[in-house]
Design a binder for these strands. Sequence first.
DNA 1: CTTGTCTATGCAACGAGTTGCATAGCAGGA
DNA 2: TCCTGCTATGCAACTCGTTGCATAGACAAG
Lengths: 191, 191
Amino acid sequence: MALEHAILVSLLEKPGSGYELSRRFERSIGYFWTATHQQIYRVLGRMENDGMLAVRTVPQQGRPDKKVYSAAGPGRAALAQWLHEPIEPESLRHDLAVKIRGAAFDDPASLIREVERHQQAHRDRLARYLAGELRDFTGPGAPAPLDAGQELQHVVLRGGIAQERMTIGWLDDVLATLHRLGRTAPPPGTG
Amino acid sequence: MALEHAILVSLLEKPGSGYELSRRFERSIGYFWTATHQQIYRVLGRMENDGMLAVRTVPQQGRPDKKVYSAAGPGRAALAQWLHEPIEPESLRHDLAVKIRGAAFDDPASLIREVERHQQAHRDRLARYLAGELRDFTGPGAPAPLDAGQELQHVVLRGGIAQERMTIGWLDDVLATLHRLGRTAPPPGTG
DNA sequence: CTTGTCTATGCAACGAGTTGCATAGCAGGA
DNA sequence: TCCTGCTATGCAACTCGTTGCATAGACAAG
């Protein structure tokens, strides 16, 4: 149910429409949660139906009307309750690791390009995170001192940065392993 | 669809029943993928129906019959095809990060216990990974030299170890931040 | 003797997430 | 002119993942 709570947090930080939320989920919230606009609209509709959110319809010229949501009393209370419930440490789902282990039954060297592509994607993500950190928290244009909300946003962003750095380093290890296996163990069917 | 592929990899490493697979998903496969027995039985049934797996029913005394699956030609071919298709770098889902950011609208200090609990869970997981590494790859009882499959299993395990170490360190950062906020910013309603 | 745990498989119901499509006006470029 | 892309919301169909429950014999602890 964490999508509900991620939406509540985002709406408490700033009210917005489903479309605006979906943009945020591509940016800062995306550091730790992703969602498409379909998911967001569906959950927003359910939460509105349950009276968890306040809605205000904003007419616009030349565009469809906008429904601006904000986290009213019940929504805020639901978030507070969830914050006090323990949750299970999450378990990873790592497709690339499945592939790496599956490479034992194929040609390990043929995975090198794919791993390099993933490593580049993580480098790009790290660069975006670092740029965001400079812009919002550590650069000359950032507010100082930060308030509690900003401190918490910053520590979450530092988690994303640490995650990307760790992954990039691990993929170096994976690449070295694949190169080594390519030299010493020819793929099945060619050796 | 990666559960299918994770199952294929596991069955290629060693044939087994649904129950045995669910045990493996609590251990080594669990380094990078989790699944409950219900998911596994459902997917195994579908894959069997699609002719992707070979099945052999093994009668047992005092226990229900066991259906031992192995990845036959079509299953192995499907895995090989998937290995050559590019996949998207995965996106994180991190419930605890949602909570941390949500703590701005509650009492940050009340999250400390929860974060400590998560950190301990990650310490425990790290200890299990390190014990497994010693047992299977780097200890005196481990095979030497390792074959390609074992090398790949090892590098995936090193990824799990790096992940846990990174997470433990980040949670230190989170705890320091929460303590700092607890000193300087009293929670809403009490200050 | 009862309770609980282990092996072993499975159904039902639900919520979460993905993919494709539809609507609709406006703006910019080939 | 047509095509693409942006804002803005939403339906339909599907797969994936979770939770609770059911069956059923063997075995061990109390």
